[in-house]
C-alpha cells in the first residue's frame, strides 16, 4: 500500500487511478496513504460544474479542457454519474464527450458512479481531488448532476462553482431559488441559440439582484454567461474560452481578496468531518452490522422495547471507553 502512495507522488498515472479506485471502493487503510498525500496538496484550482441532466455539462467540460490546454494548464476531471438504483450498475456517460483529450498526457479524466451512498461519495470525490492535485493537475473540474444535498456537498469541494442552465427546461428558476443561488459563482446559459435564452438570462439576472450574496456576501458580482450551441463549433469554442477567462478571474478575485482561505476552510472542515466519520462511525457501524446487531436493534425499536437515544448512548459508552482519548464521561448512564 505504501508503495502505491510513493508511486502516486512520483507521478504514476496508473497508481493514481488505482488509488482513486480504492478511495471510491472504501478500501480499509487507504487513509494511511492519503495522510502523506494530503500534506502536498492545495495547489490546484478546483472548479465545480453542476446543472440538470441534459444541460450539456460534459460537452462544456470538454471544451473547457481544450481552453485550459491552450494555456498549457494541466487538467483533471472528476465526472460523477448516478448509479442505477435497481441494479447498482451505472453507465458513466460523461467520458465519451471528452475522448478527444484521451491521448493528452496532461489531461486526466476520471468517471465515478454515485453508488447511492450517504457521505461516502463526497468524501471519495474530495480525496480524489487531492490525488489529482498531487499529480500536478493545475485545474481540476468536478462535474456532477442535479441540485440535491449530495451534489451540493460535492460541489463544496470547489473554489469556483458554475451552474449550467438551458432554456426551456421549465422549473430551472425554481431550482435557482431553492438553493443553487447559494453556491453559484458563475451562471452559464448553455445552448443559447434556443428559444427562451434571452428570457432565462433576464430571469437569472433578477434572481441574482435579489440575492443576499450579491448585496452583502463576498462582493463578487455573479456573472451570467451565454454559451453558444456546440453545433456551431467556432462560436461554441469562443464562448467557452470566455467562460475560462471568467473562471480564472474569479480565482484571482478570491486570492486577491483573501477569500480563498474561507472557501478552503469550509472544505477543510468538511474533510475533517468526513475523516472523523470514517474513522469513528464507520468502524462502529461495520462491527454492528457484521454481528447482525444493528438489525436486531432495529427490531427492538420497532417493537418499542427500547428507544434509539438510549441505544445510541449505550453504544457510545461501549466504544468511547475503549478509545484512548475518551474518558467515557459523555456516555455515562445518568
Amino acid at each position: 500500500m505504501a508503495n502505491l502512495g510513493e508511486r502516486v507522488l512520483a507521478g504514476d498515472i496508473r497508481a493514481a487511478s488505482r488509488l482513486i479506485r480504492n478511495l471510491e471502493d472504501g478500501i480499509p487503510d487507504t487513509d494511511l496513504i492519503m495522510k502523506d498525500i494530503f500534506l502536498k496538496t492545495g495547489k490546484s484550482h478546483v472548479i465545480g460544474i453542476t446543472g440538470a441532466p441534459g444541460a450539456g455539462k460534459s460537452t462544456l467540460t470538454d471544451e473547457l479542457i481544450a481552453a485550459f490546454r491552450k494555456k498549457d494548464r494541466s487538467v483533471g476531471v472528476m465526472a460523477v454519474d448516478p448509479s442505477s438504483p435497481f441494479t447498482g450498475g451505472a453507465i458513466l456517460g460523461d467520458r465519451i464527450r471528452m475522448m478527444r483529450h484521451a491521448e493528452d498526457k496532461k489531461v486526466f479524466v476520471r468517471s465515478m458512479a454515485s453508488r447511492g451512498n450517504m457521505g461516502g461519495l463526497s468524501k471519495a470525490v474530495g480525496e480524489s481531488i487531492h490525488v489529482m492535485d498531487v499529480l500536478g493537475q493545475e485545474v481540476i473540474i468536478v462535474e456532477t448532476c442535479g441540485v440535491g444535498q449530495q451534489e451540493v456537498d460535492i460541489i463544496n469541494h470547489a473554489h469556483t462553482v458554475i451552474v449550467v442552465l438551458v432554456p426551456g427546461m421549465g422549473d430551472e428558476v425554481q431550482a435557482l431559488k431553492a438553493g443553487l443561488m447559494e453556491i453559484a459563482d458563475i451562471f452559464v446559459i448553455n445552448k443559447a441559440d434556443r428559444d427562451g435564452a434571452g428570457k432565462l438570462y433576464k430571469e437569472v439576472l433578477s434572481v441574482i439582484e435579489m440575492s443576499s450574496r450579491n448585496c452583502g456576501g463576498d462582493g463578487w458580482t455573479i456573472p451570467v454567461l451565454m454559451v453558444e450551441s456546440v453545433l456551431e463549433p467556432h462560436k461554441f469554442a469562443a464562448s467557452v474560452a470566455a467562460l475560462g477567462e471568467k473562471i480564472e478571474e474569479h480565482h484571482q478575485y478570491l486570492v486577491a481578496n483573501n477569500l480563498i482561505e474561507a472557501r478552503i476552510r469550509n472544505k477543510t472542515a468538511a474533510e475533517l468531518n468526513e475523516a472523523l466519520w470514517a474513522s469513528i462511525m464507520q468502524p462502529v457501524l461495520n462491527e454492528l452490522n457484521a454481528e447482525g446487531e444493528f438489525e436486531m436493534m432495529v427490531d427492538q425499536l420497532m417493537k418499542r422495547h427500547i428507544d434509539p437515544y438510549t441505544l445510541a448512548r449505550e453504544i457510545a459508552g461501549r466504544y468511547m471507553k475503549r478509545s484512548p482519548c475518551g474518558d467515557g464521561s459523555s456516555a455515562d448512564q445518568s
Partner: peptide, 27 residues
Amino acid sequence: RDEGYEVIYTGCHQTPEMIAAVAIQED
C-alpha cells in the same frame, strides 16, 4: 449496467492509444 457493472463507453472512431489511456485512467 443491468448486470450491476459500472460501464464507460468510448463512442465510435477511437484509436488504440485513446482506448489504452482511458482504460488506465478509469482503472
